[in-house]
Each structure stands twice: as C-alpha cells, then as structure tokens.
Design a protein around this nucleic acid. Sequence first.
DNA 1: GTCTATACGTGGATAGAC
DNA 2: GTCTATCCACGTATAGAC
Lengths: 207, 207
Amino acid sequence: MRGRSGRRPGKPDTRGAILAAAREIFAERGYDGSSIRHIAASAGVDPALVHHYFGNKEDLSMEVVKAPIEPAAVMEEIFAEGIEAAPENVVRAFLGVCEGPVSGPAFLGLLRGAVAHQWQALLLREFFTTQIARRVVRRLGTAVDPAELPLRASLVSSQLFGLALARYVLRIQPLADAPREVVVAAVAPNIRRHMIGALDAGDREAV
Amino acid sequence: MRGRSGRRPGKPDTRGAILAAAREIFAERGYDGSSIRHIAASAGVDPALVHHYFGNKEDLSMEVVKAPIEPAAVMEEIFAEGIEAAPENVVRAFLGVCEGPVSGPAFLGLLRGAVAHQWQALLLREFFTTQIARRVVRRLGTAVDPAELPLRASLVSSQLFGLALARYVLRIQPLADAPREVVVAAVAPNIRRHMIGALDAGDREAV
DNA sequence: GTCTATACGTGGATAGAC
DNA sequence: GTCTATCCACGTATAGAC
C-alpha cells in the first residue's frame, strides 16, 4: 500500500518495522517508559534510524496514534441497526478497537500517554470531541434535548475510558478476562442511560 | 520528633513540607514527571533531605499514597442510610476522596502512577480489592448472588476510575466542571445496576 | 540507507563536611 | 539536621563516516 512504484523488495520496510515496534512498546510501557533505544532494539534496527525516519520521539508517538482509527466507518457500524441497538454496538465497537492488533496498542498507548502528559491528554480529548462525540450527537439528532448532549457525550466517554482502564491497563479481575459479550451485556445498559435515558435517577425503582 | 526543645527559626517540620510538596507534584505531573529535585525545590529544601527522610523515590511515593484513606469510616458513611441509598453515597464518597485536599492528590497520584508502572497498578488493584471491594461485598451480603460479586466489584471500579480519569485527569468538559450533585445523579443509577441490578440487559424491553 | 561516536542534559543516589 | 559536591546511569538527539 505504501507506494507501489518506489521502493522494491530487498528493503523490507524498516520504517514499518519501527512503527510496529513503537506501537507495542508505547502501549505496554507508556510514553516515558519507552525509550527510542528499546524501540529500535525491538525492531532490530539502529536507534539512529528511528530519528532518521521520524524526527523525534514526540513525532513518532503521533504517527503511531494517527494511524488506525476510522471514525466514519465505525459510526456506520454502530448505528446500522438503529438507535435502539446503538449502545450495545458502541461497546462492541469500542472493545473491537481496544483489542485490534493495531488499533488496540495505538489507543492504549494514547490513553497511557494522556495520563502522563497534558499534550497527549489534549490530543485524546480533541479526538473524542471532534471525531466521536460530534458524530454521535449528529446521529442522536432530536432524540434527546440538544442542550444536554455535551454532558451525555462526556459521561459516555468516562464509562468507556474506565472500561479500557480497568480491563486492559489495570487488568482488574474478573473484568479483565471476561468474555466480550458479558462485558457488552453488563455495560451497554449504562451507556444507553447516558445516551438516551434520564440524566438523573428518575427511572429508579426497578432495582 | 518535631518535639519541643530544638530549633525555632522559621523551620517547622521539614518532613511534612516535603510530603506535602511531593503529594502535589506527584498528582499533577505523575511519577515519572516528578523529580526529587523538583519536589525539593517546591518544598524549599535541599534535594538530599528528601533522601534523608524517605529512602528513595519509590518509598516517598508509597508514603504519599499510604497516608489518607480510611476505608472503614468511608464504608460507614456509604451504608449509613441503607442499601438503597448506597449507590448515591458511593459516588458522593468517591468524589469526596478525589476532591479532598490531601486524599485527592494522593489518589490521583496513585491513579496516574498505576497507568505508568505495573507495581503501582498492583498497589491500586490490591487496595481496591482488599479494602473496598471486599467490604462492599460483605455489606451486600445476600442481596445478590455471591458468585457474581467479584464481577460486580470490578465493574463498579471501572466506572469510578473512568469518572476520576475523565473528570480530574483528562478534564473532559462539561463533566470536569459539572456540580457534584449532577454527577452523582448521573452516575449513581449505573453504579446501582452494577451493585444490585441485573448484570445483563434483562431489564430492557425493546431492542 | 545504515551505523559509530559522541555531545548534552537530567535525574537518582551517596559521601562527607559543617 | 542540613547542605555541597559528586558519581553514575540513561536517554535524546546530532554529526558524519561507510
């Protein structure tokens, strides 16, 4: 996919190897815990090459993150079965991203970085508000009061981020090893509440 | 040891000053982002004194975290009004811890650290399972199937951690600046579901 | 394109003087 | 108890040879 015409065999994509290694290292050790030396070693190349292909560490991490998420396509998937099934599909899609071979490490790396550095937190925040929240809001249309949409979006984010944190980063059991559909069944109703349900405890009595 | 007879000049309690400075620096810059030099400067003391009072950086961070949380007392507060009001009180108590002048930085520092280092993740996990989850489980008693209690506990943790992450670390708006009671009203029903409600979507009628 | 060598900074930790 | 001086291990980044 990378330029059919330019490069030819023989040079099996050092750049790609570095990128792949970076993705994994960043995801599992965080930004600060990952050194360029480690990444280079893991990719089997010289550290100087990392600087050669990507300018510096920050740029490299941006590249890693930027790669793999297609909000538009994911949205289609989520709302394909209508608004009533959306919450389940949100959770399903989110788990899919987190467990994807490339999107997973990328997102988890970003999440880890966001906790450590403000500029990465800003990146994550920006991504969610402009790419996710905004699109969801548009889909929800007039189903709920537009004035409360931002709060709803931030609540959904918090639940989803919490899920990723507990399941993949902190690895709290048994949530960490629970089957996907168990997780979907458990948290989708909460997502539904935050998306289209009552924002206060008005619907409570049915324990 | 800050006893009577010794010095008097403007030097009260160096140890305490270091601890207070460490609490803040750790909370706002994370473990790796915080240097002993920086903490010492912020406390207005010499870096060597930090090593003198607390052995090394890791020990210092443990001390910071160990300080301020009284699980037993918090539990009383949560279940004082009975099991039905517990979910609201859980959220209220959690927000209280996060916003406390000393417990707040301590907990947020721990959360940040847990994302960066496995040993801190283990610490946080251990704290929650032995101090929080176990006690909650005991209180819940026979209200729910004991076999599903661990899953329930981990689900509650994930929601709470997600809340802390979004509101205090990532500062996603408008959740970050929403009044406490708005947050309580919004997330308590979800906590209720995970504590004593249906674990699947059984309470929902239309897909 | 790839690697060697190195400059430069930062940060944890210790020894020992006052 | 407090501070000065210093050591040492990394880690980023660059310059330049092959």
